[in-house]
Design a protein around this nucleic acid. Structure first.
Length: 937
RNA sequence: GCUCGAGUGGCGGAAUUGGUAGACGCGCUGGAUUCAAAAUCCAGUUCUUUCGGGAGUGUGGGUUCGAUUCCCACCUCGAGUACCA
C-alpha cells in the first residue's frame, strides 16, 4: 500500500477537531508554555505558501513542548479591522463585517489543511464587539491615568486631582504637554470644572491635541510614522503631507526610558532591539539657554556636546521657530521671509531627499554666549528640524559636520577648540582622546571631564541643565476610517467624556457610505444614529442631540494597532464577559514565551504592545511588564516570477533566450503556466487572457523559455503559490517539512516547488519502512546496534536543532536516518515508536497514523518524549581520525563518551601511533571529543 | 552617511568554544527496471590534473601545528534608519 497522504491527513484533522486534542487548560500540574504567532489580517487574497512559514515553525515548537511535558497554549485569531476591507466596501458597498467574515472562513479552511495544533476554542477577532469592548476599556483606563516621572509609573488621575487640590502642580513631576502653567492648590480650587478638565487633559496618557499629522489625502486618513515608508504611505504608496488636526494621542514618550532599558531583559535578536533603540533615539546632553542681545527674548538649544560650547560660531534656528519673526532685524526681514516661504513650499519628502543643498539666512540678531558674553550671529536653516529637541541648535563648526558645511557655505568663521586636531577641511566629531583647548575653564580637559564640568557650570549659573532627549514621539491614535474600533467618547462643550464601563461595547454604527462626508468629516459622520443619551445610556439618533443630555459621539476610530497591542492576553481567557483577562488566567500564563512573526513590526506593533503591557502592569491589571519574552522573526518566502517578452508594439512574444537586441516589454505571466525547466505552456498562455489568444511566438528549439526574477509574492505579479494545491498534490506533512527545509527560518528565501519531491520522497521512504506491500509490518525483534545508533544520533541532533530553531537541518537529519534505516532493513518497533514521536511535530499526520498502528489509542500528542530520550540512550561509538601535524593518517575506534584524557591515552598507546612517533615525544596532543585527535610532533 | 546582517559547488543550503569543507535536498550524468513513459532503485557529481597530486569558503594581509570559523583592511549584496544637534 502506498502512502495515501490525503486520506490520512483528512482523518487526523477530523480526529483532532472532534477530540479537541489541542485544547489548553488554565490549570495544570505541568509547567506552562505559551507559543504565539503574530495573528494574520484576513485579506481577500487568501494564504500563499509564504504565510504559513512562521506558523509551521511555531507549531513544531508547540508540539515539541507538549511532548516534553508542558501545558502549551498555542492559539490563533484574526487582526480583522483594517483598510483593505474598508476600501473594498467603498468600491462595492459590501459591509466590511461581511467581507471580513468570508475572508476569515477562507483563511480557516486553508489553515486547517496544514494540520496546525491551534486551540481554536480561544480564537479572537479584533473586530468583534466582545473583543473591542475591551480595547475600548483599555482606552478608558489610559484616559483615566497620568504618568508620574518620579515613581516611573502610571497612576490614576484621581490621585493627580488629589495632588492638585493639596499642593497645586508645582511639585508634580509628570509627563504632560509642554504648555502647562504653574498653579497652586488655591488656584486649582477656584478653577471651573471645564478649566480643570482642560488641564487634566494635558496630563492624561491619552489626550486630545492639535497636532501636526501625516495626512494622506488619497486614503483620507492620518498615518503613524511607522506607516510611512520613504515619504509615501506603506499601504498603496500614496503621497503624505503635513496637516494640523485635533487628534487623540498616546503619551508613549513617557515610557521611553523603560521601553529602552527593558530591552535588555528580552531574548530578541540584536538587530530587532537595535531598531527599537534607534526608534526611541535616546540622546544625553544639555539644554542651554541663550539670551538674544538687545531684546528680552531668550531661547533654548539642546546639544549632546555642551563641552564644545566655546566653539560656538553661530546659532541656527529652524525656519518654523516661533522666535524668528520676533528677532529678525528690519534690514534682514525680506530675505528671511523669502527663505521661510521657500522652505515651507518644499514638502517633507523633498527636504528629506535633498540633504546636500545647504541653505539658510541670517536674521540680523545676535545671541549672547553664556560664558564669554560675546555676540553670536543667529541664522535660520532648514537643516534644523522644528520637531526635534527645541528646534534650535548651537552651531559648532569645528565639531559637527553639518555646522561645518554651513559655515563654509556662508563663509562663517570656524574656531578650533581641539588640541592638535586640524579642522580646516572637516569637522572633528570624535570624542574619546580629544583634549579641549581655547575654552577657558574647559581647556586641557578630556571629553568626559569637560562634559561633566560644563553641565555643572551651566547649572550653577542657571543657564542650562543636563538633559536627555528622545526621538520617540507620542503616537497619534485617531484614524478617519470606518472599519476600526469606535472611541467610547462623546463631547460635552468640546470636552471629551468617557462612556461608563458597564455600557461597553459601543458598537460601530451602520452607515450608508464608507467615504468621508461632504464636509470632510470621517465616515462615522455619515451615521444617523451616532449620539449618546446620558440618561438612557445608549446610542440614539443624531436628531436628538440637545447638548444637555444627548451628545455627539466621536467620529474617529482607533488605528490598526489598538486591537493587536493586547490580544496576547485575551487568548488566556478568551470569551470572559466580565474582564479582559482574569487575574488567575493571566498569572498562570504570564506572557508569551515564544513569539514568531515578521520583522516589519519591529517599531510598530512590538513597541505599542510593550507600551500597553507596561501601562496595564502599572495599573495593576497585569503581573508582567513585557508581552513577549523570546521573539523570532521568520524571513519572507519570496516568489519566483516568470516573464514573457512582448516585442514593442506587436503581439509577438520572444523566448527569453532569443531576445538579443530586440526592444521588448517584460510581462508577468502566471507561474502555473510554466514548468520546472522554465518552459511556457503556450496553449495555456493563449487561453489565459483574451488579448493573448492570437499571440505569435518566437521559440527556441520549439520551446518558449520564460525569464525569471525573485520578488515578493503577490497576486498582481502572478507568482503566488497556493498551499492548498501543495497539500492536495503532496500532502500537508510534505508542505510543512519542505517549508522548514527551504533554509534558515529567519532568512528570506525564494519558493521553488521543484525541490519539494525530495522531501516528499523522504516521507514515502519513511512509510515504506514499516509497510510490506499493502500490509503494515513492524518487527517485534530487538533492533540492531546500528539501527539504534542511527536512532539515537537522530534524537540527539533533532532535539538540539529544535532548541536552536534550526528546523532546516533537522529535516536533513530525518532524511539521513531514514536512508540508514532503509539500508539496514530496519522495521523494528523499538526504533519506529520513538521515531514517530520525534517526527510528530514536523509531520503530525503520518506520525499519528504510525502511532495508532503501533497500537496506541490516544493521540501522539500525549506521548512522553523524555521517556524515549532516556530509554534509547545507547552507547555509541565513534571513529577518531588521528593526524600528525595536520596530515590525517588513520582512525581509531573509541567510545564517544570518553573524556579528553582517556581518548589521548588510548591514542598514544595505539601501535600505529607509536610507529609514527618512533620513540620521540609529541609536542602537543589536541583532542576534540567526538571529532578529532591531532598530534603535533 | 550611520547601525545591523550576509558573501561557501549549477541551485537551496550544511559545518563556528578553530579540527576530515561542501552534510541533506534539487538539478545533472550513467546504469537497473519498462514495449515505452512516469514512478522507483543503484552509482557518480567543487574545480583542475600528466591520475602522483594541486587549488579551493568575496579580495588582500595576519594569528595558529591547523582558519569557512578569530583579528585588520577592502569589495559586493541585503535589511533598518536618516539633516536627531
Amino acid at each position: 500500500m502506498s502512502y495515501h497522504f490525503n486520506k490520512i491527513e483528512e482523518k487526523w484533522q477530523k480526529y483532532w477537531a472532534e477530540n479537541q486534542t489541542f485544547k489548553a487548560f488554565n490549570t495544570s500540574e505541568k509547567p506552562k508554555y505559551y507559543v504565539l504567532d503574530m495573528f494574520p489580517y484576513p485579506s481577500g487574497a487568501g494564504l500563499h505558501v509564504g504565510h504559513p512559514l512562521g506558523y509551521i515553525a511555531s507549531d513544531i515548537y508547540a508540539r515539541y513542548k507538549r511532548h516534553k511535558g508542558f501545558n502549551v497554549l498555542h492559539p490563533q485569531g484574526y487582526d480583522s479591522f483594517g483598510l483593505p476591507a474598508e476600501q473594498y466596501a467603498i468600491q462595492t458597498g459590501q459591509h466590511p463585517a461581511l467581507t471580513t467574515q468570508n475572508n476569515i472562513a477562507r483563511y480557516r479552511e486553508q489553515l486547517d489543511k496544514i494540520g496546525f495544533s491551534f486551540d481554536w476554542s480561544r480564537e479572537v477577532r479584533t473586530s468583534e464587539p466582545d473583543y473591542y469592548k475591551w480595547t475600548q476599556w483599555i482606552f478608558i483606563q489610559l484616559f483615566e491615568s497620568w504618568y508620574d516621572l518620579e515613581a516611573e509609573k502610571s497612576r490614576p488621575v484621581s490621585e493627580l486631582v488629589e495632588l492638585f487640590s493639596s499642593e497645586g502642580n508645582t511639585r508634580v513631576n509628570a509627563a504632560c504637554d509642554a504648555d502647562i502653567a504653574e498653579f497652586s492648590a488655591e488656584d486649582w480650587a477656584q478653577y471651573a470644572e471645564d478649566e480643570k478638565e482642560q488641564i487634566l487633559l494635558k496630563y492624561r496618557l491619552t489626550y486630545l491635541a492639535e497636532t501636526e499629522v501625516n495626512w494622506c489625502p488619497q486614503l483620507g486618513t492620518v498615518l503613524a510614522n511607522d506607516e510611512i515608508v520613504n515619504g509615501v504611505s506603506e499601504r498603496g504608496g500614496y503621497p503624505v503631507i503635513r496637516k494640523k488636526m485635533t487628534q487623540w494621542s498616546m503619551r508613549i514618550s513617557a515610557f521611553a526610558e523603560r521601553l529602552l532599558q527593558d530591552l535588555n531583559k528580552l531574548d530578541w535578536t540584536e538587530s530587532l532591539k537595535e531598531s527599537q533603540r534607534n526608534w526611541i533615539g535616546k540622546s544625553v546632553g544639555a539644554q542651554v539657554a541663550f539670551k538674544v542681545m538687545n531684546s528680552d527674548a531668550e531661547f533654548e538649544v539642546f546639544t549632546t556636546r555642551p563641552d564644545t560650547i566655546f566653539g560656538v560660531n553661530f546659532m541656527t534656528l529652524a525656519p518654523e521657530h516661533e522666535l524668528v519673526s520676533k528677532i529678525t532685524t528690519e534690514d534682514r526681514r525680506q530675505e528671511v521671509e523669502a527663505y521661510i516661504e521657500a522652505t515651507a513650499k518644499r514638502s517633507e519628502r523633498e527636504r528629506m531627499a535633498d540633504v546636500k543643498t545647504i541653505s539658510g539666512a541670517f536674521t540680523g540678531a545676535y545671541a549672547e554666549h553664556p560664558f564669554t558674553k560675546e555676540p553670536i550671529p543667529i541664522w535660520i536653516g532648514d537643516y534644523v528640524l522644528a520637531g526635534y529637541g527645541t528646534g534650535a541648535v548651537m552651531a559648532v563648526p569645528c565639531g559637527d559636520q553639518r555646522d561645518h558645511d554651513f559655515a563654509r557655505h556662508f563663509d562663517l568663521p570656524i574656531t578650533n577648540i581641539f588640541k592638535d586636531v586640524d579642522v580646516s577641511q572637516e569637522a572633528h566629531a570624535g570624542k574619546e582622546g580629544t583634549v579641549i583647548a581655547n575654552s577657558d575653564f574647559l581647556s586641557g580637559l578630556e571629553y568626559k571631564e569637560a562634559l561633566n564640568r560644563v553641565i555643572l557650570e551651566l547649572e550653577k549659573t542657571g543657564q542650562g541643565y543636563g538633559k536627555t532627549n528622545y526621538r520617540l514621539r507620542d503616537a497619534v491614535f485617531s484614524r478617519q476610517r470606518y472599519w476600526g474600533e469606535p472611541f467610547p467618547v462623546y463631547y460635552v462643550n468640546g470636552l471629551p467624556k468617557m462612556i461608563d464601563l458597564e455600557h461597553l461595547p459601543l458598537r460601530l454604527p451602520e452607515v450608508e457610505k464608507y467615504l468621508p462626508t461632504e464636509s470632510g468629516e470621517p465616515p462615522l459622520g455619515n451615521a444617523t444614529n451616532w449620539a449618546w443619551d446620558t440618561e438612557k445610556n445608549e446610542v440614539v439618533s443624531n436628531d436628538k442631540i440637545n447638548n444637555s443630555t444627548v451628545f455627539q459621539l466621536e467620529l474617529n476610530t482607533m488605528p490598526g494597532w489598538a486591537g493587536s497591542s493586547w490580544y496576547l492576553f485575551r487568548y488566556m481567557d478568551a470569551g470572559n464577559p466580565d474582564v479582559f483577562v482574569s487575574e488567575e488566567a493571566q498569572q498562570y500564563w504570564e506572557n508569551v514565551d515564544l513569539y514568531i512573526g515578521g520583522s516589519e513590526h519591529a517599531t510598530g506593533h512590538l513597541l505599542y504592545s510593550r507600551f500597553w503591557t507596561k501601562f496595564l502592569s502599572d495599573r495593576g491589571k497585569l503581573s508582567v511588564e513585557e508581552p513577549f519574552k523570546k521573539l523570532i522573526n521568520q524571513g519572507m518566502i519570496l516568489g519566483t516570477s516568470a516573464f514573457v517578452y512582448r516585442l514593442e508594439g506587436e503581439n509577438v512574444f520572444i523566448s527569453a533566450t532569443q531576445i538579443k537586441g530586440n526592444n521588448v516589454q517584460p510581462i508577468h505571466v502566471d507561474v502555473s503556466l510554466v514548468n520546472a525547466s522554465d518552459e511556457l505552456d503556450v496553449e495555456g498562455f493563449k487561453k489565459w487572457r483574451p488579448e493573448f489568444a492570437e499571440a505569435k511566438f518566437v521559440l527556441e528549439d520549439g520551446r518558449y523559455i520564460v525569464g525569471r526574477e525573485v520578488e515578493k509574492m503577490s497576486k498582481s505579479k502572478y507568482n503566488v503559490v497556493n498551499p492548498d494545491e501543495i497539500c492536495e498534490r503532496y500532502g500537508a506533512d510534505t508542505l510543512r517539512m519542505y517549508e522548514m527545509f527551504l533554509g534558515p527560518l529567519e532568512q528570506a528565501k525564494p519558493w521553488n516547488t521543484a525541490g519539494i519531491t525530495g522531501v516528499h520522497n523522504f516521507l514515502k521512504k519513511f512509510w515504506k519502512l514499516y509497510h510490506n506491500g499493502a500490509d503494515f509490518q513492524v518487527s517485534a525483534k530487538k533492533a540492531s546496534a546500528d539501527s539504534l545508533k542511527s536512532l539515537h544520533k537522530t534524537i540527539k541532533k533533532v532535539t538540539e536543532d529544535i532548541e536552536d530553531f534550526s528546523f532546516n537541518t533537522s529535516v536533513s537529519t530525518f532524511m539521513i536516518c531514514v536512508n540508514e534505516l532503509t539500508a539496514q532493513k530496519c522495521s523494528s518497533r523499538e526504533v519506529l515508536e520513538p521515531l514517530a514521536v520525534l517526527i510528530a511535530p514536523y509531520a503530525p499526520h503520518i506520525a499519528e497514523e504510525l502511532w495508532q498502528k503501533l497500537g496506541h489509542d490516544k493521540s501522539i500528542t500525549t506521548a512522553n518524549y523524555p521517556e524515549f530520550e532516556e530509554k534509547y540512550l545507547v552507547e555509541s561509538k565513534k571513529n577518531y581520525p588521528v593526524s600528525f601535524n595536520g596530515k590525517m593518517r588513520f582512525t581509531i575506534e573509541l567510545p564517544m563518551d570518553l573524556s579528553k584524557d582517556e581518548i589521548e591515552k588510548n591514542v598514544l598507546e595505539d601501535e600505529r601511533t607509536k610507529n609514527q612517533l618512533s620513540g620521540s615525544t609529541p609536542k602537543k596532543v589536541i583532542v576534540v571529543p567526538g571529532k578529532i585527535v591531532n598530534i603535533v610532533t
